[in-house]
């Protein structure tokens, strides 16, 4: 019998080695796998490359992982925010490598990795500093830049409901990078509010089919938390 259910985030992340490349889902706080990031911080692996849209907010979560000196490189589109002080300080001190990628190229490079695409030509970024040194081609009169897939050893994502086969549904804009990261990583770990019995998820409504998911951890209803008071 297949069971991708794990009893804890710690169990799901136990095997992450030093030097791993890890995708972390979320756009701002929506879809951020908070409990998995906390478990990664606890787990201790270091020299990590992180692929994520942002580079951490405040002092917790991804920002704390950066602050602990565990990340050597981050691939992201929007590191600078009003509360990205930990990343900002590391970057200015030359203690973290940054690969800045336009958001849509980031998404497509992740998608390409999951879909077995060797590389692709995209119009985004052509003629800009972020395409410097990259191969270009004019196709049917339009200029394109060659971009390569981004793969990862692990993807840590957050979803709404999951089952023991790893089928996932999401809620509203928290979906963001979850489905594409799940497809791009060797091992995908999803935290979900609730694990439901097999058959409870409407097959027509499954967004990430379980084939892309390796571990599912139930982390409890987010609605119970303070910031959710309005939608309880």
């Amino acid at each position: 019998m297949i069971s991708k259910t794990r009893s804890s985030a710690a169990e799901a992340l136990a095997d992450i080695p030093d030097g791993a490349t890890i995708m972390i889902g979320g756009f701002g706080l929506a879809g951020q796998p908070v409990q998995l990031i906390d478990a990664l911080l606890e787990q201790g692996s270091t020299g990590l490359t992180i692929v994520s849209n942002n580079a951490g907010n405040g002092e917790t979560g991804l920002a704390a992982l950066l602050g602990a000196g565990r990340v050597k490189k981050i691939i992201c589109s929007f590191p600078r925010q009003t509360d990205s002080q930990i990343f900002d300080a590391l970057y200015r001190a030359g203690r973290i490598e940054l690969e800045l990628v336009p958001q849509g190229n980031l998404a497509e490079r992740i998608r390409a990795a999951g879909a077995g695409i060797g590389a692709f030509f995209t119009p985004t970024g052509f003629g800009t500093a972020l395409a410097e040194g990259k191969e270009t081609r004019t196709i049917a009169g339009r200029d394109y830049v060659l971009e390569h897939p981004i793969t990862a050893d692990y993807a840590l994502i957050s979803a709404y409901r999951g089952d023991r086969l790893g089928n996932l549904t999401y809620r509203r804009t928290s979906r963001n990078f979850g489905p594409i990261m799940a497809s791009a990583a060797t091992v995908t770990v999803a935290q979900v509010d609730r694990i439901v019995p097999l058959g409870d998820l409407d097959p027509e409504a499954v967004v990430t089919p379980g084939i892309f998911v390796d571990s599912v951890v139930e982390t409890g209803d987010r609605f119970e938390r303070e910031e959710w008071a309005d939608v309880r």
Binding site: F27, G28, L29, R172, N176, R222, V231
Partner: peptide
Amino acid sequence: DPDLINAGKIPVTELPGASYFHHG
């Protein structure tokens, strides 16, 4: 709703006929 934000990360609302999709 913390799951419902716009590109500026501001909480927004959903209109009838709305749809959601991933970044790709």
